[in-house]
Amino acid sequence: MTSAHPQAGPTYTFLGPEGTFSEAALLEVPGAAQAHRIPSGSAADALDKVRAGEADAAMLPIENSIEGGVSATLDAIANGQNLRILREVIVPVTFVLLAAEGIGLRDVRRVGTHPHAWAQTRGWVRANMPAVEYVPANSTAAAAYELLASAGSSYQAAICAPIVARHTGLKVLAAGIEDNAGAVTRFVLVGRPGPLPAATGADKTTVAIPLPEDHPGALMQILDQFASRGVNLSRIESRPTGQFLGHYFFSIDADGHISDARMADALSGLHRISPNLRFLGSYPRADAQAPVVEPHTSDDAFQQAQLWVQELLADRSGS
């Protein structure tokens, strides 16, 4: 990865402000703790910084084990100048309820947080503060900093990561308020196109596939390209292109690397169906879990099949 600021080392951006889960994920990247880090207000803003060369890469949430895909990130990556996912990071998710000094649980009438955080804590809130209203925020940390910024905030408490309490000095009213213990969020480090990470045998490939036309069996055609080559899909979601009603693209994570014969062949088949498909990267899986590859979809099986066809063509040309 070529640095946006060569003399100072790499520059990273993340969904800010300081103390978000995105920053925690970024700090899992070797060297990121010592690198220049710039918070961004949104996924689109972060990726604009990468595209403009103001940052070398952006760390953004892309999938949550409870709520599924993070639409803002999926859409921002799939549109605009091409980018590449360089790696993924899995972060365990736990939440605290923060408020300023002098505010108790009984004083809270409205709570601010990110929509995904609210989805993972609303059961606890309803059980413990049934009359509380929810106020959306750009990030969990942004909700907490709003409490510091103005005494006239539209809410009295914020739901965020425990690290935010240390950053802000806000009081913890309750900890461990997530509804599902063990929930995780998957983050991706996104940079500009360049050399791909080497295949490890436990990799993931992400693509965005627009439907050239909507017709019966259109999705089946796409899925068949993977299924017939033994490529497992770990995530598939439809997202609107924004062009007009009913026009969608499919955001897909598939097990394997583009250098694997089965994956390369599947992507070739997809390109014939949807020439505008967007390859978003092949990168190591965070859990290092290798896929099960059937013998007939192994690289050796593809190579032997190609040799067989070549021999047949050679016999034909020599006859």
Rank of each mutant, 00 (worst) to 15 (best):
I103Y: 00
G242M: 07
V111Y: 02
E28I: 04
H114R: 00
A175L: 02
A175P: 03
T297C: 14
M1Y: 09
L170N: 01
G242H: 07
S40T: 09
D260K: 02
T113E: 04
A158S: 07
W308G: 03
N138T: 08
V89E: 15
L60C: 06
H271I: 01
A33V: 14
G123W: 09
A290Q: 09
G201H: 05
C160M: 00
I62S: 06
T205A: 05
T113G: 03
G269Y: 03
N138V: 03
T73P: 14
Q221G: 11
A100G: 12
D214A: 11
A161V: 01
L270H: 08
R278F: 05
I252N: 02
F95A: 05
I252V: 15
A4R: 10
T11L: 11
G318S: 15
T168N: 01
T241D: 05
P284I: 05
P92T: 09
Q34I: 10
M59F: 06
S268C: 02
I252T: 03
H116Q: 06
T185E: 12
I273S: 06
S251E: 12
T140D: 14
V132E: 10
S22R: 09
L267E: 04
L60H: 03
G104S: 14
W124R: 06
F244I: 08
V309N: 12
Q221K: 12
I103V: 10
A151V: 10
I159L: 02
E311I: 13
A290S: 15
A127S: 10
N180Q: 11
A76S: 10
L233H: 06
F244E: 09
W118R: 05
L267V: 02
A44V: 09
I62L: 11
D287Y: 11
A44C: 08
A24V: 06
F187E: 07
Y248N: 11
T206M: 13
A117I: 00
I38L: 14
A72G: 11
A161P: 03
A44I: 11
A218R: 08
V164E: 02
G112C: 01
S319T: 04
S251T: 04
A218Q: 15
T168H: 00
T73C: 15
G31D: 13
L233C: 12
H271Q: 15
F95C: 06
I38H: 05
P195Q: 12
N79T: 15
T73M: 13
S317M: 10
S234I: 00
Y12E: 09
D45G: 15
P30Y: 07
V132P: 10
T2Q: 07
F226V: 13
A254N: 12
A43D: 13
A158H: 00
H5P: 05
Y12R: 13
E54V: 08
F21M: 07
S238C: 13
P92Y: 04
G41R: 13
A175S: 08
L270W: 08
G104D: 13
G191C: 07
V91F: 09
S234V: 02
L47V: 15
P6V: 09
A32F: 14
S153M: 05
P92C: 05
R278Y: 10
